[in-house]
Computed example of a mutant assay.
Amino acid sequence: MKEKSLKQLLEKARHEIEVTDDELAEAKRRRQLLAGALGRAFPGSTVYFNGSVAHGDANSPLTDVDLGAKLSPGDAQGFGPDGNDALPLMERARDAIREDLAKEFPKLTVEVAGRRRAVLVRFGDPVTAGQPDFTADVMTAIPHPSGKGLFIPNMEIADKWDRADPITHTEMVLDAIDRTENTFARTVRLLKHWNCTHSKPLCSWNIKALALECITTPMPLAEALQAFFTHAAQELKSGQTDDPAGVADLIPLNLPISEVRKRLDTARDYIDLAMEHENENRPLSAQHVLSKVFPEIVPDADPTQEEAARLRRDVIVTGSAASGLGLAGPRVTTTRAWAL
């Protein structure tokens, strides 16, 4: 088998996980049906799209979609931290969605009771073959009095509403994709896969928020990954990530911050080492190390003969050999990083 460069390995890996055209088209069609129902329920509202489909970084299998309605001042009247909670608005959205979609999707369920933020739509019909279902989170949001961002429901806190700015978030992500000539979206796809295979230390939005600060120009994927892991590990030394829109609270982590930083540090060290091996013309060693970061989408390689040849050259040139296979250093082990 012909040896592959890091560029080739990462391109193949990101193609392997990216959403298919058919999945994406069907998800967008269903999202548009929901948008029509929201528009009918709340005339004068602005329907917005957010989440991975809107951001252009969805992976397969595709299991959900996100959207919301920014209500008109008239529909928002009487709601907010100083007024009513979002339950009547969510019920209004639920009824419109049922009326508009139930005929096409006979197994459709639309849930409001017990929901923290959004109406949960279960289509009873997956977009990706083999998946149990396809769902949607549908938000009923109201304008913030400042004109910056929204109040979105949070039924689990005393005020019943949180500040957020999902519209600006989507604009920021799409701008980053454009400025980086798609490097941003392609890197985020890989990072979301890394996250899922290493205990999910970060939520998807935290990945994107950190990436917005360090992936700002077109660059090779290996360099983009290196930039992200280096930046993220450094930024989390001072605490959780700020909302890039300057509206919402700090972005919560899924694990203690010390554990998150360990995973970021380990991934950074592996990417650094893979690039070092490639620069020294050891492609199998580079692939072996990269597979530790992406164990399911970058196949492992056996670098034994390649490294043995390097050791022999080192003995001839210097009279001594470096330790191991060139895969172990002061910060890196040869075992899979943070396996589940």
Rank of each mutant, 00 (worst) to 15 (best):
M155A: 11
M219C: 06
A129V: 06
A337M: 08
T183S: 06
L9V: 03
P81K: 01
N195A: 11
M155L: 11
T20R: 04
G329E: 00
D66P: 11
Q8E: 11
L67G: 09
R261D: 03
G83H: 03
L340T: 12
I271G: 10
S258V: 05
E16A: 08
H169W: 05
P283C: 04
L202T: 08
E91P: 00
R186L: 15
K70A: 05
H193Q: 13
L38R: 10
N254R: 12
R179L: 06
E213G: 13
I142N: 11
A339W: 03
M219I: 00
V110E: 15
L101C: 07
T170D: 08
T333W: 04
D265Q: 15
D66V: 13
V315W: 12
S258K: 09
D82Q: 14
F294Q: 03
D243R: 05
R30T: 09
R336K: 06
G83L: 07
G44N: 04
A274P: 00
E99S: 13
Q287R: 04
E278P: 06
A37D: 11
K103D: 00
L250E: 06
I207T: 08
A232M: 04
T304G: 04
H144L: 10
A158S: 10
F134G: 02
V317P: 15
R336Y: 14
E276L: 02
D21A: 14
L191W: 09
D137R: 11
Y270P: 00
G246E: 10
S291W: 01
M90I: 14
I17E: 02
W338H: 15
A328D: 13
D249R: 10
I152E: 03
A185D: 13
R94H: 07
V293W: 00
T187A: 08
I177M: 10
P143L: 10
A41P: 02
T109H: 07
R40E: 08
Q287C: 02
R189S: 12
T333Q: 14
A211Y: 07
K2N: 11
F42V: 14
A339I: 15
Q77G: 03
N254D: 08
P244T: 11
H193A: 08
E213D: 07
G39D: 12
A185I: 07
A37V: 06
A164C: 11
K208H: 10
A141E: 08
N195Y: 05
D66N: 15
S5W: 01
D165E: 00
R92Q: 09
A164E: 00
K148G: 03
K28L: 06
C196I: 14
P61K: 04
R94P: 09
A54R: 12
E16Y: 01
S52Y: 04
L89S: 05
P218Q: 00
L212Q: 12
A58Q: 05
A248M: 10
T197F: 01
F105I: 15
A301R: 02
V53Y: 01
H55D: 15
L87N: 06
N182L: 02
F42W: 10
R117S: 07
L174M: 10
S291A: 13
R29H: 00
A222V: 01
R282D: 00
R263Y: 06
F228W: 01
L327W: 04
E3F: 02
K12V: 05
D133G: 05
E104Y: 01
F105N: 15
L108Q: 13
E223R: 09
P295E: 08
